[in-house]
Design a protein around this nucleic acid. Structure first.
Lengths: 333, 333
DNA sequence: CTGAAAGCGCTTACAG
DNA sequence: CTGAAAGCGCTTACAG
């Protein structure tokens, strides 16, 4: 198929459509935007639609944003590139829900370098979403750039129920190890570059469940995987009487399990490990990793609805279904 | 620190800055944009900068885009979420180079669902970059949406030297297995959702090197990791006399190695496997995975320069340094 | 039921 | 060296 180039290099505007349809340019806007309180005859509507289709009209988003004061862009600031396996399905669903409501989701990871201008300066987002509270300078910068809403709301306390912590996951991890008879647990995560705020939130969720089960709090242990096999960390745990490791994700679980195997330990007899995500690596690893699978698609849909509530004032669907995570017990627990 | 809210909810405009500085609004634009062929006195410049600083002025990007016809946004369409470990450094560097030139990089992964409108419809990008050629309908849609440039250029043949294939990586993988005495090799990748175009490009690079070394072509074998351990695939290879596996990335290598270990094979005696990326999992896996590390940061910088060449017509820096990949030989080769 | 017109906040020739 | 003014392509009261 040959690429259809416009004969004139000029882009098609609403005025072109109006001329083609024989109406005013305002009418074109009313029809195409389905503006309420405008009664347009069916014949006119038809003609406008046909003309727009014929000419391949796409509204200029910059002009629309300038005139309406809304860009219909939602910016999601991620703590890290979405390397997490399940995050993909999650973001796909969020994106889909927003798209249906006429919004576009843009994901964005801050550069480590200070010099780079944050994306909200050039994007004119209606709403900026973070996975943790934004710093005061960030909030000030967003407001100066015309961002209309920020989540988490800087004026209100942080609402962890809509974060990416997926607290049901860590809770199930703890429950599982508890059921298997483990009482002394530790929470393991990597040091940078992994998402700090998500680590903190999931660790907190694990601790909450541990307390409810009458277990002592889980220490948060950050491992630098770049320093090679962290043999001594595992030794320390054994010396301290730890028998179960709750890992932030499957990569962390793999690091711990790999180290333990090389140290000659038998899993889960000497040490039980449970990951999070059920990423491909969990099944491939030798021994295969016990883990927890989150219905991220359902949570993504739910978060999408929440975002529309924030940006459009739509009512939140109630009752909100809390998607239950699934335990995937394999060889490490 | 308290969040500084503007006293009036109205956003600060160039007119406000002009009034504060006691100049015309046009002068504000000239100073802040450093417009060439405008000679503004140093005193005036100072006053404008001070006023803009004082008021916290941020130009409205929608107005700017509408008036200038350029958004200074570059859209990178990724074949998949950046799950690849090394892609992260790469994108960081591209982003940084573009930011210094006043451009913002937005990364974007197409939704599997057909219904969602592509992001270039709402973003007004100056340049859309793909990792493979775009379909004719996509190109038509971009042009209708005012995209000024597309890469790979739909009017010119695909230039693989600026793709994400990193052809030096696959070449080194093949060289290494060849050096270790392997003559019958196979190229392994996952089925969806992994990046098809990158698989094809890397497989081609591996084949090119194999031919130069006098080896037979590598078959491309796609494995569905969701179907559990692909035992029979490994069996087939052994029966066919294959002794070396070149894997698309470390995850694929892990799947193959895990399967082989479970099947009771000894690596690398029975089968040699080499991954790509040197991701954390490569060192953690038992046995640890031989792999290839790419200087993705250098390649990212190079690609950033190329993008600026495409969008701004800047000269390409020559000679272009081809960042040499590093072999990381571990237990599987 | 439809249209003329002001306005969003910039950029950019052009005139002094 | 600086400013007045047109124009980018929409949206949206407002008037018929």
């Amino acid at each position: 198929m040959a690429v259809q180039r416009p004969t004139t290099s000029r882009r098609v505007t609403a005025l072109d459509v109006a001329r083609e349809a024989g109406v005013s340019r305002a009418t074109v806007g009313f029809v195409l935007n389905d503006t309420p309180n405008q009664t347009i005859s069916e014949g006119t509507r038809e003609r406008v639609f046909r003309a727009a289709e014929l000419l391949g009209y796409r509204p200029n988003s910059a002009a629309r944003a300038l005139a309406s004061g809304r860009s219909r862009i939602i910016l999601l600031v991620l703590p890290d590139w979405p390397a997490e396996y399940r995050l993909r399905d999650y973001l796909d669903e969020v994106s889909l829900v927003l798209d249906k409501a006429g919004y576009s989701l843009v994901t964005y990871t801050r550069q480590p370098s200070q010099s780079a201008r944050p994306l909200w300066e050039s994007l004119n987002a209606d709403l900026v979403i973070g996975t943790a509270s934004f710093s005061a300078p960030d909030v000030a910068s967003m407001l100066a750039c015309g961002v209309r809403a920020i989540h988490p709301d800087p004026d209100h306390p942080y609402r962890p129920d809509v974060s990416l912590a997926f607290s049901a996951g860590p809770e199930l991890q703890v429950e599982h190890l508890h059921e298997r008879g483990h009482r002394r647990l530790v929470y393991a995560a990597f040091t940078e570059p992994y998402a700090s705020s998500m680590v903190v939130a999931r660790h907190a969720a694990a601790n909450e469940r541990a307390r409810a089960l009458g277990l002592p709090d889980l220490d948060l242990r950050r491992i630098d995987y770049r320093e090679g096999a962290p043999q001594q960390v595992v030794r320390e745990w054994l010396d301290a009487g730890i028998t179960g490791v709750v890992a932030f994700n499957d990569d962390v679980a793999a690091a711990v399990v790999g180290t333990a195997v090389r140290a000659g330990l038998t899993l889960p007899a000497d040490l039980a490990v449970i990951g999070h995500d059920d990423s491909p690596i969990a099944a491939m690893f030798v021994p295969s990793l016990s883990t927890v699978r989150i219905d991220t698609a359902a949570l993504g849909r739910q978060f999408g609805e929440f975002v529309l509530h924030r940006v459009d004032g739509r009512p939140l669907p109630t009752p909100r279904v809390s998607a239950k995570p699934v335990l995937v017990a394999r060889e490490t627990s």
